[in-house]
Amino acid sequence: MIPIENFLLLSALLFAIGFYGVLARRSAILILMSVELMLAAVSINFIAFAAYMDPEAFTGLIFALFVIAIAAAEVGLALGIVLRVFRERRSSMVDDASSLKW
């Protein structure tokens, strides 16, 4: 039997790595990938708690499923935006899109 702490630790590390990626990366697509990592970490948390703590209520599992679905939607939408930005500026680097400043 695997203690729940193992899963939680994995999720925490994965989330922190994803977070780092979001902050450190320049390319919009890489940032998107890092966001996927964070979402996956959250999913792991949901499922671990659902499976260990409350298997009857089922809510965590549904949440996880929705996270997957919404992540898919988000990737689709975000890639659309990235394409758009790329077409406007010939670049997909987020720090090139900095016209909204002083």
Partner: peptide, 17 residues
């Protein structure tokens, strides 16, 4: 203070973080 507004999304994300 306006120079805090860099317009770079990562900076804002860092602030949020």
């Amino acid at each position: 203070l306006k120079f805090l507004q860099t317009g770079r999304i990562p900076n804002y994300a860092l602030g949020m973080a």
